[in-house]
């Protein structure tokens, strides 16, 4: 029993990181209709930027986290505008666009390896005394990551519900051409979506590297599959679904690790398959329209 409660604690930390990643990923798909598989590599870029800021420049890890978030925003917007947009303007099909994102992912991954080598990196962090909460054990840094995820999710909720740009993002996600005829400049809305999702992507990348202890050029890419699982679990394109997906998959996979660490991914993807069997379009199915056209 004690072990299970401990694992729930680990699960909450994993779910926090996963939620930032999954919501960022799903936001990109929801607004731009682009299934961006280079997402994981942008996470890795952010982790390395934070490494340079913290280990090399000597700034605090929280400043490094912020720098990672900024790096995520900048890289996402640049990739979208410089690489994806020219393809979309040529009318590249949605399936071909997925392959473009795979190509970007592979190129980024290899360029990162040229600079980083195949070695592992870790932030120079001092050990911290752990904090006990309801039988769960966290380090103060983990508590900050959990708080950060909660703040991000609450912030997104407020953005979607109460701000003009947030509502315009939902409108664009619902029907981009209708949004345009309402006078909504959808190109500005998609730029904003790339910025917001890039921020989440960068924060998730640094948080993941902190949580794992060590990371390499392939860390983000290998975590991407779990992110996609959480996003698809909650119906891809649906931010609230992705939050639920992240929580369920994060906690369930850590619980499975009680039996054997090898079961983590088995349980995560097993759950995904079960959800897709019951609701073929994910938890919040029927709420997302898969469109053929990519929104610029």
């Amino acid at each position: 029993m004690h072990q299970i409660i401990l694992s729930i604690g680990f699960g909450i930390v994993t779910a926090s990181i996963l939620s930032m990643g999954a919501v960022g990923f799903t936001l990109q798909f929801g607004v731009t209709n682009l299934f961006n598989l280079a997402f994981g590599d942008v996470m890795t870029i952010a982790a390395f930027v934070a490494y340079v800021v913290h280990n090399d420049a000597g700034a605090s890890i929280w400043l490094a986290l912020a720098a990672g978030g900024a790096a995520g925003m900048l890289s996402s917007v640049l990739i979208a505008r410089l690489i994806y947009l020219p393809f979309m303007q040529r009318g590249t099909s949605q399936f071909a666009m997925v392959m473009v994102t795979v190509a970007v992912s592979i190129v980024f991954n290899n360029v990162l390896q040229i600079f980083s080598g195949t070695g592992f990196y870790g932030y120079a962090l001092l050990p911290q005394a752990s904090v006990h909460i309801l039988g769960m054990v966290f380090t103060p840094r983990e508590l900050v990551i959990i708080a950060l995820a909660v703040v991000c999710m609450a912030g997104l909720h407020l953005l979607f519900k109460y701000t003009r740009i947030g509502k315009a993002m939902r409108a664009t996600s619902d029907d981009a051409s209708l949004a345009r005829t309402c006078g909504i400049p959808t190109n500005r809305v998609t730029n904003f979506a790339w910025l917001a999702s890039g921020l989440l992507c960068g924060l998730a990348g640094v948080a993941l590297a902190m949580d794992l202890g060590t990371f390499s050029a392939t860390t983000g890419g290998s975590f991407l599959l779990v992110i996609v699982a959480a996003a698809v679990f909650g119906s891809v394109g649906e931010p609230y679904g992705a939050m639920v997906g992240a929580l369920v998959i994060g906690v369930a996979s850590e619980l499975a690790a009680v039996i054997s660490p090898d079961l983590k991914d088995v349980v995560a993807f097993g759950l995904l398959v079960v959800v897709l069997l019951v609701r073929p379009e994910g938890l919040r199915s029927g709420r997302v329209q898969i469109r053929g056209e990519v929104t610029r």
Binding site: K167, A171, S173, D174, D175, L178
Partner: peptide, 8 residues
């Protein structure tokens, strides 16, 4: 036909 935003 697609005259309203369904999720708004």
């Amino acid at each position: 036909v697609r005259d309203t935003f369904p999720r708004l």
